[in-house]
Simulated assay, not measured.
Amino acid sequence: MIRRRSTPWIHKWSRPLIGAIAGLGALTTGYIAIEKLTGGAAACVAEAGAKGCNDVLSSPWATIPIFGGQPLALFGFLAYVSMVILAVTPLAWKPGDKNSLKQLENSTWWLLLVGAIAMSVFSGYLMYLLAFQIQAVCYYCIASALFSVSLLVLTIIGRSWEDIGQIFFTAIIVGMVTLIGTLGVYAGVNPSGVTSDSTSGESRKINFTPTEQPNPAFGWEITTTSGEAEIALARHLATTDAKEYVAYWCPHCHEQKQLFGKEAYQILEENQIMVECAAESPKGQPEVCKAANITGFPTWIINGTPYSGVQNLDQLAKISGYTGAKNFKYFR
Rank of each mutant, 00 (worst) to 15 (best):
T89C: 03
P90N: 07
L91R: 15
W93F: 15
W93R: 08
K94W: 04
G96M: 08
K98V: 11
N99S: 15
S100N: 07
S100L: 06
Q103V: 09
Q103L: 12
Q103N: 12
N106H: 13
S107G: 00
S107A: 15
T108I: 08
T108S: 14
L111G: 13
L112Y: 05
L113C: 07
L113K: 08
G115Q: 03
V121Y: 09
F122K: 01
G124S: 05
Y125H: 12
Y128E: 08
L130A: 07
I134P: 05
I134W: 03
C138K: 03
C138M: 00
Y139A: 11
Y139P: 00
Y140L: 12
C141Y: 02
I142A: 12
A143M: 10
S144H: 08
A145L: 05
A145I: 02
S148W: 01
S148C: 11
I157P: 06
I157N: 03
I157Q: 06
S160F: 04
Q166C: 01
F168R: 09
F169H: 09
T170V: 12
I173P: 00
I173W: 11
V174S: 13
V177N: 01
T178E: 06
G184L: 08
A187E: 13
A187R: 14
N190C: 05
G193Y: 05
T195I: 07
S198H: 08
